[in-house]
Structure formats: C-alpha cells, structure tokens
Design a protein around this nucleic acid. Structure first.
Lengths: 139, 139
DNA sequence: CTGTATCCTGCGTGATACTG
DNA sequence: CAGTATCACGCAGGATACAG
C-alpha cells in the first residue's frame, strides 16, 4: 500500500489546491483524460503487438472512423507515445510504431487490464445485485 | 513484459471478434469506460484517504456538481466499488466507504498515476516539440 | 493508400431550482 | 444534509464526400 500512498497524497494536494480555487493543473488529470478517451489505449495495445500501417490499424479496430483514427494517432504522436514513419512510395505508406514512452505505458496499463479481467465477475455480480435490489427506483 | 503480454493477447482476441462483426462484449472496455469518465477515479482516490460523507466529498472535490457527485457515487456503488451507509439522524447522514473491491483497484491505479507523474515531463516536452515543428498545419 | 473537410447528432455534463 | 428534477449546451465522435 506504500506505493498507492504516494499517488493518493498527490491527489489530496491537487484537491486542496482546487479547494483554494487555484488553477491547479494536474499531470494525473491530464493523463487520465487521455486514458479516458475512447480509442487511445486500444490503439496503444494494438501497436504493442507490432508496428502497423494506417489501414492495418483500421482493419484491426473496425469500429473506429477514419476521422478518429487519424486524430487519435495524431494525439499519441504529439504526446510522444507513437512515432510516424512515412515512406515515399506510390501510393504512400505510413507506419506507426510505439515509441519508448509508449512501451513504458504498457506495464501499468497491463496491471489495470489484469485487474479488470480478474475482477469483472465480481463487478458484474454487484451490478446484478444492485439492479435487482428492492426499492429500485425510489430512493 | 510477460505480464503485459496476457493483456495484449486479450485485446487481440477482442479485436478479432470485432473484425468478425461479433458483438464482443469486452470486460476491459467496460472498465476503461469507467476509468475514462470524469470523476470516478478521482472519487475512488478521495475515498481511499478515508470514508466520507456526501458534503465532505463535495468540499474535497469542489469542481463537481451535486448531480455528478450523486451519479458517480451511485455508479460506483452499483459496481461494488463503494458502499453507502445511511444513518437515521436528523438531518440525514450518509457515509460512503471504499469497498474491498474498490481497495483492490488502488494498486493498479497507483501504478498508472506513478507512470503519469514520472513521465509527464517527457510527454510535455514531446508536445512542445510537436507543436513547434516546422510545417505545423500542413501535412 | 492515407488522409482532410464538412456537416450533424447524441450524450455527458453543468446550472439552477426544488424536496424530505 | 443529501439528494431529485429540469433544462440547456458544448463538443466528442460518426457519416459522408472529397483529395493528393
């Protein structure tokens, strides 16, 4: 729990700043926002398997629009998690690779995914229990 | 890297299902969505410090509306991450506690937050570099 | 093949007022 | 104190057409 404690403390400090109405830009919030967006982590995981081209990625993740594919890749590139390599062929070839920074994200991400996978039965059970609870709507 | 590999494999399987146009409900996607929402993780971290009442939480996280505070707590309760304890006083007292399931999320969350904190300088630098790059807008 | 440019919609969220 | 009920809105994200 000692490793969690640091994180918690950082959050507390951040919240205290907010309470004092200070702008308080928070690195964690920033990263959480990225984690949170619909496609970024999916993309990182996909590129963890191997470097891939634009259309390969599109095939790998079929339910993303080209618009979002482009935008997500651009954001990841901007943050230094992914690198973009253009080959001057006709038609053009563009390959996306996971940068070292992106690689380093894999470990903590995997920890979270393992948690999700292991705990999902419990979460699901809790949901069923909650939804079946008497006095469902009235509070 | 062996621990990441399992997670990656699970994602690949998930994507393959999607590619075959199967419904493919994914536990990971489910959990990522929760991580992604604006307040859930903030709340879990806050409750990790200590159990708190509704208004204490509101003071601790000043920039959340009562509406979202209620909703987030309800969702967390539904998922079994948080428990809700009502005391029949006047006026009513309600205390929210982190359930065991919620506690178990702390470790992987902390790993991610540590990553965010440690890597933020690199990310920030990458952004500056990207934004200052020549041929900024034209692609 | 690898994108961009528009247009459009829904949903997550905030603001405000009300209640037991 | 601990919520609910309503309204209102921005913007993330989808669909489609076009371009180098």
């Amino acid at each position: 729990m000692s490793t969690s404690q640091n994180a918690i403390d950082r959050f507390s400090r951040y919240h205290r700043q907010l309470a004092d109405a200070q702008p308080a830009h928070c690195a964690v919030r920033d990263v959480l926002d990225r984690i949170g967006d619909k496609w970024s982590m999916l993309m990182v995981m996909e590129l963890a398997t191997r470097s891939q081209r634009f259309s390969e990625l599109h095939r790998a993740i079929p339910d993303i629009s080209k618009r979002m594919l482009t935008q997500t890749l651009r954001d990841l590139e901007r943050d230094g998690l992914v690198t973009r390599h253009v080959f001057s062929t006709r038609p053009p070839t563009v390959e996306y690779r996971l940068a070292a920074l992106g690689q380093s994200l894999l470990e903590p991400m995997a920890a979270l995914i393992d948690w999700a996978d292991r705990r999902y039965p419990e979460i699901h059970a809790a949901r069923v229990r909650f939804d079946d609870a008497p006095g469902d709507v009235p509070r």
